[in-house]
Design a protein around this nucleic acid. Structure first.
Lengths: 343, 343
DNA sequence: TTGTAGGCGTTATCAT
DNA sequence: ATGATAACGCCTACAA
């Protein structure tokens, strides 16, 4: 069917190993240049393409990485955050000449079913784009010999390789930016799930403390259900019912999607952003620029995250005894239209 | 390193072929049930996992599909439309027990470089998520023996397998819906690129004709540059400068991203959606629900598109002589907040 | 400088 | 009912 090494060898009148050597580019000096040229020519003419599968079998490595999307969500890529992370990993993989398999799972599928695909030799290593719970693939993965790295995670487990951003510092920087704009009543709106909400809230609180602004407990709302806009609407409405001199002038949200809902809720109660109130997000996913007003937010270095994760997989491949590493990358404060000086 | 078939066979005291047969589940009746049970047990204990690579080599098939993202865009997944299509393909592939490789490319990479990855046997077939231009991989792909299917495409080329939606009919339905709401002055805003703009515009025009509404040339704006909001802002401002009794009461956009920019532009000139003016999108990507007001739009059946594409690949695999098929799937009009009856 | 041959882990075709 | 063995296409010692 397809052109094989042997076909090229026969046609060029040399042995398979010669062709293999030449085409692998490994042994430049070993084979006579004119032979090399001829063989290359023949290979090209015949449209020869080495079989990745056969090569993988003998090399015991596929140059392919697996990217694991969260099994919890029906449609992870509908969340612009996961799209952004995936995009970053894909870009980084392409740059490094690696292929990428993307794994999703139906919420109904068992751990074993999922694992089957993840470690049957198709991938050299895995990049897990979420925080697996204990009863998820995590423990099994640790027992297997597949190197893997978690992104967007910061577990205490010392056996794990992770790449994450500085949630605490980022939120502190954002809060300080708002304080610098003259805001003194700042509320934090957070979803009720996500490993990152803890550090982000702490960052917010630290900034307040540092600037000597007393923390108003009414301004810390951390039980929002992200996929239920009505809870957000209620919370925002409650805040805005406060007397005008007690009402927050800035709302910090723990992610961009939430910020979008918040802005929408504000407009429903007749407030304009940023004229009446400032709003900020976190992540700088694709929705941040597109929404109106465009969002002041914290940009995650998605491609760097992907690159680090891939490199950490490679590190484990090169030396399986490497002790786990935890990387924490800096972010960037991106100022757009949703924030303005306090009046 | 890893547990092989032979290891299991040795431990269980049977031959490799027996184990293979048992574990493949192919021959239930051929091997003594008690042996089967024992072998299964041993395999489980040893944590045996068949090597996908070895299996692929002998079967000449990997059960893996390649999904090709557009090479033109720096970050295709930042576009919620591509995220949605990819999501649909991934879901459909998971349902069918297939793995998925996702290919991106740096805009600088050559066609040959890209092709190398696409047809080295790693994938059984390809799903191309964009409309490749002539000098892109298309012609090469046709010469190779890799089955492939284009989504979101509707070329005249009779050699191609495509899955697409009914652009014309969808836009006509949307236009008629607005007319049904009492709108009589409807403007169409379209980006200046995309194979789909032609049919979408035609659908709009047909609806007007059918309803006996004369087409006002000022209301057909098809030269917008999607990534440059300022052109959109200008166009919207120009429309809104018209005397109030000549000004459109509804704006149809050819995709959701554009609609988002349009809504933002409207708000800048002080108009509210949908109270003052109705706006519609197309695609129902993730931005449609999240934005405020949420968007009345045309929903593409992403998972069905993915499923059909995969099935068409399989069809070609089963019978390489199958004549090319072109599928055109229906869409759904999703009514949300951005439209209201004309006053 | 080039060729030969063994093996990668599995499946499938035969024998037994 | 089971087992030996030849592919699958490639890489790589080692031999020539």
């Amino acid at each position: 069917m397809a052109v094989r090494l042997k076909d090229v060898a026969d046609r060029a009148g040399v042995s398979v190993s010669a062709v293999s050597n030449i085409l692998s580019g490994y042994s430049k000096s070993r084979i006579k240049p004119e032979t090399q040229e001829r063989v290359r020519q023949v290979a090209l003419e015949m449209g020869y393409r080495p079989s990745a599968v056969a090569r993988a079998l003998v090399r015991r490595q596929t140059d392919t990485l697996g990217v694991v999307l969260p099994p919890t969500s029906q449609a992870p890529l509908r969340d612009p955050f996961f799209s952004a992370v995936l995009e970053g990993v894909l870009q980084a993989a392409t740059t490094r000449g690696r292929d990428t398999m993307v794994f999703t799972a139906h919420p109904t599928s068992s751990t074993q079913e999922r694992l089957g695909k993840l470690c049957d030799g198709r991938c050299d290593g895995l990049i897990v784009l979420y925080q697996p719970s204990e009863n998820d693939i995590l423990t099994e993965l640790l027992n297997l010999s597949v190197p893997f790295v978690l992104t967007s995670d910061w577990r205490e487990d010392p056996r794990l390789f992770c790449v994450d951003v500085e949630h605490h510092e980022s939120m502190r920087a954002m809060t300080e930016y708002l304080i610098g704009l003259g805001h003194r009543r700042l509320a934090l709106l957070s979803s009720n799930i996500g490993y990152y909400v803890g550090p982000r809230i702490a960052g917010y609180q630290e900034a307040l403390t540092r600037q000597g602004i007393p923390a108003d407990p009414r301004f810390l709302i951390s039980d929002l259900i992200p996929w239920d806009p009505s809870t957000v609407l209620r919370a925002v409405a409650a805040l805005m019912m406060l007397p005008i001199d007690q009402r927050p002038t800035a709302l910090l949200c723990t992610n961009d999607s939430l910020a979008a809902i918040v802005i929408s809720a504000l407009s429903r109660v007749g407030l304009r952003v940023p004229e009446d109130i400032s709003v900020t997000g976190f992540n700088d996913d694709s929705s941040a620029v597109r929404q109106h007003p465009s969002l002041t937010t914290i940009a995650q270095p998605y491609e760097t995250i992907g690159g680090c994760a891939i490199d950490l997989v490679q590190t484990q491949l090169d030396d399986p005894a490497t002790p786990p590493q935890r990387l924490r990358l800096p972010t960037k404060l991106v100022i757009r239209e949703s924030t303005a000086p306090a009046k």
